[in-house]
Design a protein around this nucleic acid. Structure first.
Lengths: 208, 208
DNA sequence: GATCACATACCGACCAGTTGGTATTGTTGA
DNA sequence: TCAACAATACCAACTGGTCGGTATGTGATC
């Protein structure tokens, strides 16, 4: 299949509008009518592209994964030679993204899964896929950093990658509660400190 | 004021029902009708005790703070002599609470604030108060642990206490996405490891 | 001329909130 | 002690508006 070029058709307009609206108001409070109005399309167009609202939720999670996947794939932290620096660079990159309004830097799928994990399994699965796939992009670097240091640990690259995601998601919640990014940035600083201690305090320095 | 004995009146029945229902389905998807049915009261009773649905949200956050406040105040981790052990004991206590279904161990206010932070400032403030007040119960022990070790840090007890809350909230999100508590427990293990490294790797042992 | 990509108009269900009432509890003063 | 009154607690039925979803129409494109 050739990559579908993103014409500004009704579907992609709806998905783009969904990303910001759901992040701001949540999934349930985002009504189909409002979404259509924001996207500048009619309700008929909505139900032409999505069988129901839940299907939009699933598609929005997929769209989110595509957008963020491209963003992180192109980010400069991959250029570090030391894999630990790449992991730390990832966290620094996430911290650098913490600007603008709270709805602008928070995570769509983290927001959506809270509302739907019990009531809409398809959306929950889509959110899980988004988070887990993204976390998996960190595992190779974490594993390499462990091997560089001959670390034997009672944790795995997978659990650390997911822990990093947990800190990010939790930082977003606190940012929403406090109405600003500062508390999230502070939390990411603690996360960086953890990673530094974890890989540095083992005693061994990275192999040359 | 004497402590108001919790007679099973309509108000407290509604609040109790709200805690579990909002945790399971979210704030928006929890309808007043359903809530009344679950609480076994009529809609008239609801609007007698709460001017509108948002006022219930605020009251639910307050009710949540009271319930959890009592739970943590009575928890055994306060008995440790070393303040660091009390902080680690807190995390272990949180980990021990991770059983039963996902809606049973997740946090009401963390769920609610995601949906309401932009649309219902009163609820957002109530959720912030709940989280921040709870975090503050850790600050004294964190500060004491720092003093014991003559630590000079570029972070404060407040940011670490909030970071602990962020990890918890994020762990809940991952648990919802994955449909189980294991991922949350793993994240709390990383948090414990961070605290141990942070206070242990400074070099100094606690003062006798 | 058939399909696609939308638009218009509409529907029944359900939503938060209201109304107008009754039962229960508390207060007060003779 | 208790009648008279007042406030509280609760109930059943209803309402206007909004919700997700549908039925049908229409112009462009293959």
């Amino acid at each position: 299949m050739p990559a579908r070029i993103a014409k500004p058709n009704a579907r992609s307009k709806l998905l783009d509008a969904a990303l910001s609206m759901i992040r701001a108001k949540g999934y349930c409070a985002t009504t189909v009518d409002e979404l259509c109005a924001a996207a500048g399309v009619t309700k008929g167009a909505f139900f032409h592209h999505f069988r129901n609202k839940d299907e939009l939720g699933v598609a929005a999670a997929g769209h989110w994964s595509e957008m963020t996947g491209a963003l992180f794939a192109a980010a400069p932290y991959h250029n570090h030679a030391d894999p630990l620096d790449r992991v730390l660079g990832y966290v620094a990159f996430r911290k650098a993204l913490l600007h603008g309004g709270v709805p602008d830097f928070t995570c769509l799928v983290g927001t959506m899964v809270q509302e739907t994990y019990e009531t809409a399994p398809a959306i929950r699965d889509a959110c899980d896929r988004s988070i887990s796939t993204h976390a998996r992009t960190l595992e190779a670097d974490i594993g390499a950093a462990m091997r560089d240091r001959d670390m034997s640990a009672d944790w795995t690259p997978e659990t650390l990658a997911l822990h990093i995601q947990a800190v990010l998601q939790g930082a977003f919640i606190l940012a929403k509660a406090k109405g600003g990014a500062q508390v999230a940035a502070d939390s990411l600083d603690h996360l960086s400190r953890y990673l530094t201690l974890l890989f540095g305090a083992g005693g061994a320095t990275p192999n040359p």
